[in-house]
Design a protein around this nucleic acid. Structure first.
Length: 487
RNA sequence: CGGGGUGUAGCUCAGUUGGCUAGAGCACUAGUUUUGGGAACUAGAUGCCGGAGGUUCGAGUCCUCUCACUCCGACCA
C-alpha cells in the first residue's frame, strides 16, 4: 500500500481509502486488497489454496442456491461422485486425459501401503459420470439422465490467485446423457442460457454468448459454448461453459442403450460448469476504490443498520425495531458495536453492502431514517412509515443499475479491428474486447496470440459482418470473433 | 515453469559498521468520556525476526539452501 506523504490534513482525509490500493494505480493489488480486507478469504498453509471465510462463503451459498434452483427447474437432479478416479478410468478418453494430465494430483499411498493403482484427485468428473452411466443406462426409457453435482475439484496450477485460480476450487458440474445428438445440443444451449440469465439477473454481469474455437474448446468435447464477461481492467473472464460431447465419451466408455427399434445406440452427452471464480468476477466487475460492491441478489447483508449516538435513550431500541421489521423483506444486520459510526460506514462499504441505514436521535424525532446506496453514495431521507417499500425499491434499483453500469463499461471497452495494426494498437492502448473477422484458420489464431497476447474468447451467436477479410491474413473471413486478454 | 519484489507483534513497518533484555504506530483487552465519515485518555497483553544449515566469542543483521506470499510472462475454470 502506498501512503502518500503530504500534510497532516491530507493524510487524514485520505485515510478512509488507504487500506485499499486504487484500481488505477495497480489493479492486481487492488484485487488482492479487496479479497483480504472484505474478509472473503484468507491464505492457507498450502500453496495456492485459500480459506473461504464466512462472508465469502455466504456469497457462494447465495450463488449456489439460486443456480441450483434453476437446475431443478430445468429437470436436473443432484448426485455425488467420489473424489478419486482410478488412473485406468481417467485414461479411457484420449483427448480428455491429455488435456488434464499436466495438472492432476495423484494419491499413491493408503496409510503406509502403496496402492496397486494410483488414484487421481478429480480435476473434473466426466470419467466418473461416464463409468456410472455405462452401468445404469440400458434402454431409451432410461434417458435422458440429467445429473448435477456440487463439489470441489483439484487442478495443480502453477500460478494462483484467490477465486480466479486456486489449486482446489468449488463448483458445480452438470453431466447429462441423451438419446440423440439434437437433444444433447439442445441441452448444451439450454444450460448456457441458464448461465447467461443467471449472470445478468443475479450477478448483474452482462455476458457475450458464443462458441469456443477448436483451439480453446474443452479437452474431449465436440463443441464448447461459453459466456464471456469483461472485467473493469479490460481483461476478459470466461464466466461459464457448456460442452457438447457428442458420442465421443459414450464410445470410449461404452454407454449404450437399446432404442425403440431394438437397436443398440450410443448416448450423446453434455457437461457444464460454474465455479467460485464467479466471486472473482463480481469483485472485478462491480468493485471500486472503496472496496467491494455486491449486487443485492448475492449480498449476504443487503442492508446494514448503523445507529448514531447509540448510547442515547431510544436509539438502539429503534434500531432493533427497524431490524425486526426489515428482516422480513431483506437480509439485514444491525451493527451495535461501540465502534465509531464513521468507522462502520467505511467497513461496510469495503464489504460491499448495497444499502446502509443510519438512525440517530434527530431521525427518531422526525420519524425518519437515512438510506445511503453503496454503488453511487446517493443519500435519501425516508419516513419510517414507508420504509419497507422504499428499501425493497432501492435494492431492486441497485441490482438494475449495476447491470446497466457494467453493460455500459463493457460496450465502451469493446472495439473493432480491421487489421493487425489496429488490433495491436487497441490491445496496447485501450484494453477490452476486440471484435474482428477471422478466416477460421488456427494458424491465424496462434499468430494473433503471439503478437498481441489476446486469445479468441468466442465466436458470438450474434454475428456481425465487419469486413470480408480476416484481420490477420486478409483471406476470406468466416466468423466475427471476440478477442481479448483473459484471466 | 522462467523473471522481479517481499518475509521482524494480528496489520504496516523501523532496527546503525554484526554487540547487552528486539522497537513504533495501528489493531487487541479493561475502564472512563465520546458517537451524523475510520474518537480521546489511562492501564495492560502481544514475538521460533518465514524455516534449515553455516561463518563468528556473539547473527534480526553476513553466506548457502529452502519455503511461502506477491507481481509480470508461458498453461488452465
Amino acid at each position: 500500500m502506498n501512503v502518500k506523504r503530504g500534510d497532516q490534513k491530507m493524510e487524514k482525509e485520505k485515510k478512509l481509502v488507504q487500506e485499499i490500493t486504487s484500481m488505477e494505480e495497480d489493479f492486481a493489488q487492488w484485487y488482492t486488497d479487496i479479497v483480504k480486507k472484505a474478509e472473503l478469504v484468507d491464505y492457507s498453509s498450502v500453496r495456492g489454496c485459500m480459506i473461504i471465510r464466512p462472508y465469502g462463503y455466504a456469497i457462494w451459498e447465495l450463488i449456489q442456491k439460486q443456480l441450483d434452483q434453476r437446475f431443478k427447474e430445468t429437470g436436473h437432479e443432484n448426485v455425488y461422485m467420489p473424489m478419486f478416479i482410478p488412473e485406468s478410468l481417467l485414461q479411457k478418453e484420449k483427448d480428455h486425459v491429455e488435456g488434464f494430465a499436466p495438472e492432476v494430483a495423484w494419491v499413491t499411498h493408503g496409510g503406509d501401503e502403496e496402492l496397486t493403482e494410483r488414484l487421481c484427485v478429480r480435476p473434473t468428473s466426466e470419467t466418473l459420470f461416464c463409468d456410472h452411466y455405462s452401468k445404469v443406462i440400458q434402454s431409451y426409457r432410461d434417458l435422458p439422465k440429467l445429473y448435477n453435482q456440487w463439489c470441489s475439484v483439484v487442478r495443480w496450477e502453477k500460478t494462483t490467485r484467490p477465486f480466479l485460480r486456486t489449486l482446489e476450487f468449488l463448483w458445480q458440474e452438470g453431466h447429462t446423457a441423451h438419446a440423440t445428438a439434437e437433444e444433447a445440443e439442445e441441452e448444451t444451449l439450454r444450460m448456457l442460457n441458464v448461465y447467461a440469465e443467471f449472470c445478468e439477473n443475479v450477478l448483474a454481469i452482462p455476458v457475450i454468448k458464443g462458441k469456443k474455437t477448436e483451439k480453446e474448446k474443452f479437452a474431449g468435447a465436440v463443441a464448447t459454448y461459453t459466456i464471456e464477461s469483461l472485467m473493469h481492467d479490460g481483461k476478459a473472464l470466461q464466466t461459464g461453459t457448456s460442452h457438447n460431447f457428442g458420442d465421443r465419451f459414450a464410445k470410449a466408455f461404452g454407454i449404450q442403450y437399446t432404442d425403440k427399434n431394438n437397436q443398440l445406440q450410443y448416448v450423446h452427452q453434455t457437461s457444464w460448469g460454474m465455479t467460485t471464480r464467479l466471486i472473482g468476477a463480481i469483485i472485478m466487475v462491480h468493485g471500486d476504490d472503496n472496496g467491494l460492491v455486491l449486487p443485492p441478489a448475492v449480498a449476504p447483508i443487503q442492508l446494514i443498520i448503523i445507529p448514531i449516538a447509540q448510547h442515547k435513550e431510544g436509539v438502539l431500541e429503534k434500531a432493533n425495531e427497524l431490524k425486526e421489521r426489515l428482516s422480513k423483506i431483506a437480509r439485514v444486520k444491525l451493527d451495535d458495536s461501540d465502534k465509531m459510526p464513521g468507522w462502520k460506514f467505511s467497513e461496510y462499504e469495503m464489504k460491499g453492502v448495497p444499502l446502509r441505514l443510519e438512525v440517530g436521535p434527530k431521525d427518531i424525532e422526525k420519524n425518519q431514517v437515512v438510506l445511503v446506496r453503496r454503488d453511487n453514495r446517493e443519500k435519501v431521507f425516508v419516513s419510517i412509515d414507508e420504509l419497507e417499500e422504499k428499501v425493497s425499491e432501492i435494492l431492486k434499483q441497485i441490482q438494475k443499475d449495476l447491470l446497466e453500469k457494467a453493460r455500459q463499461h463493457r460496450d465502451a471497452h469493446t472495439y473493432v479491428a480491421k487489421n493487425m495494426e489496429e488490433f495491436e494498437k487497441i490491445i496496447n492502448e485501450t484494453p477490452g474486447f476486440i471484435k474482428a473477422m477471422w478466416c477460421g484458420d488456427e494458424a491465424c489464431e496462434t499468430l494473433i496470440k503471439e503478437k498481441t497476447g489476446a486469445t479468441a474468447r468466442c465466436i458470438p451467436f450474434e454475428q456481425e459482418q465487419l469486413s470480408k477479410h480476416c484481420v490477420c491474413c486478409g483471406k476470406e473471413a468466416k466468423h466475427m470473433v471476440y478477442w481479448g486478454k483473459a484471466y
